[in-house]
């Protein structure tokens, strides 16, 4: 899922200042799971915003709505009427969701309420960790299902670097050494020989370094 964090209230307050009627639009999928933009966060932010504005003697009309996903037109259309009756939308989706709303409603300002952070997992309750950078050419089969690009601080494809201590990364002892994890896992799988092969430099053109990416599925286009 996409992991994000709600922007500080002061920043949101500044962004919405020019508008009298605001729709706070939540997304019920990724950002709901990471407590940044589901129904609960929409409600809390609405209340917090109303309080802080009222304290300053200002008032704006805020409408709340959460749709299933902000990155699919089918769900976005459910918000059409609410978007039409407001001056602006504060989207609590990831950057993709914000842009998809903006693409479909070209006359309405769509503002981001979340800092989109990474592609990750809920490792345990309350802890989200980065697992993938979307490089466009997945090599997890070689590394026993542990991504050295996303999880090794130095992004080494031919690791380890030799600096890890007690299984922790020398750059940040709070994170596990991805190469320790790769080696342990390959040992368990009996695939340590994977590491006998030199991994050549990665062709980053399949990543966003190669410019904006597009996926076309002709079989789904009428």
């Amino acid at each position: 899922m996409i992991v994000g964090e709600q922007k500080p209230l002061a920043e949101i307050k500044k962004t919405v200042a020019p508008y009298k009627k605001l729709l706070i639009l939540g997304c019920g999928t990724c950002v709901k799971t990471c407590f940044a933009g589901g129904e609960d966060e929409v409600a809390t932010l609405t209340s917090a915003l109303r309080l802080t504005l009222k304290k300053d003697g200002k008032e704006i009309e805020i409408e709340e709505l959460t749709i299933e996903r902000q990155c699919e037109d089918e769900f976005i259309q459910e918000a059409a009427e609410a978007i039409a009756r407001n001056d602006a939308v504060l989207s609590l989706a990831c950057g993709a969701g914000v842009q998809d709303i903006a693409r479909r409603f070209d006359k309405v300002p769509v503002l981001p309420g979340v800092n989109t952070t990474f592609i990750g997992v809920l490792e345990k309750q309350g802890l989200f960790t980065e697992e993938c950078v979307g490089c466009g050419d997945c090599e997890l089969a070689t590394f026993g299902g542990i991504c050295p690009i996303a999880r090794c601080s130095k992004r080494l494809l031919n690791g380890p670097c030799g600096g890890s201590k007690d299984g922790k990364c020398e750059i940040d002892p709070d994170i596990d050494c991805a190469w320790q994890l790769i080696i342990d896992r390959l040992k368990t799988l009996g695939q340590l020989d994977n590491l006998r092969n030199y991994i050549p430099p990665k062709d980053w053109r399949s990543s966003n370094a190669g410019g904006p990416r597009k996926l076309v599925r002709e079989d789904h286009i009428i």
């Binding site: 500080p8 209230l9 309080l51 802080t52």
Partner: peptide, 8 residues
């Protein structure tokens, strides 16, 4: 913490 941010 949020109430501090709000100014209350």
């Amino acid at each position: 913490d949020l109430l501090d941010e709000i100014g209350l």
